[in-house]
């Protein structure tokens, strides 16, 4: 049995670690959104577009790209408020509406355009396969998240949405790893490939860790 001082210390520690996790997440998410906005002047002078000039000549790829980055912006911004317990308990409508935006954007825009673009992604066959897996996994986890909440299964909804969010966040973590390896002076293509694998697998592992913790806490409530 913990006394009140120990409890306060424990709570303060938890709050600190939450802050340590969420401050960089919010910062880098907003940075990604900010860096995406310039693409909407439809200029061809970005290195990403210049490198793929052949693909951007195709209208389907061209519009897929712009829809995909727009969807990414919306889904990352919408998902930032989804994990707040304050909003979930006191402003449930915000949670519901941003959730609807997230689901709509992922299922109808983000995942399909991502899947199409994955066929032409940079890297070897395995990197393309990874992009395809990401798009399908993102679609399925979001779909399962929606299905479970419709069935009023809140715990399963949380679990599937954590997995879906982990996939959405690969866009952010990939860039962080990419910058870190760039500073370490790694070869560009090697850096790209390794950053991609680490971001996808790393995010999945982190998501599973959070799910494990969530389930453990949930199971604790049944103990007498």
């Amino acid at each position: 049995m913990l006394n009140s001082r120990q409890l306060t210390l424990e709570q303060a520690g938890k709050f600190f670690f939450r802050l340590l996790f969420w401050v960089p997440v919010v910062f880098f998410s907003l940075l990604l959104v900010r860096n995406t906005i310039p693409y909407y002047n439809f200029s061809q002078s970005f290195s990403f577009i210049e490198e793929r000039a052949l693909l951007f000549a195709k209208p389907v790829y061209y519009w897929s790209f712009y829809l995909h980055i727009g969807a990414g912006m919306f889904c990352i911004t919408a998902s930032l408020v989804q994990f707040s317990t304050y909003i979930l308990k006191r402003r449930r409508k915000i949670h519901i509406w941003s959730g609807k935006i997230y689901v709509f954007v992922v299922l109808l825009i983000g995942a399909p355009t991502g899947l199409y673009m994955s066929f032409f992604a940079k890297g070897s066959f395995w990197e393309r396969a990874l992009f395809m897996f990401m798009a399908i996994f993102w679609f399925l986890t979001t779909w399962w998240g929606l299905k479970t909440i419709k069935e009023k299964n809140v715990l399963a909804h949380k679990i599937w949405m954590i997995r879906s969010y982990a996939m959405a966040m690969t866009a952010v973590t990939f860039r962080i790893y990419h910058i870190v390896f760039y500073v370490l002076d790694w070869n560009h293509l090697k850096n790209y490939e390794i950053s991609l694998w680490i971001s996808v697998l790393g995010n999945m592992l982190i998501a599973e860790y959070f799910i494990y913790k969530q389930s453990k806490r949930y199971l604790k409530t049944f103990t007498i």
Partner: peptide, 24 residues
């Protein structure tokens, strides 16, 4: 919910089929 499943499923299938043909 059915709308999401139908529309999303259709778009994913179209993206994969068109992606393969375009890639080839």
């Amino acid at each position: 919910m059915k709308f999401y499943l139908l529309a999303g499923g259709l778009l994913i299938t179209a993206a994969s089929v068109y992606g393969i043909t375009d890639y080839i």
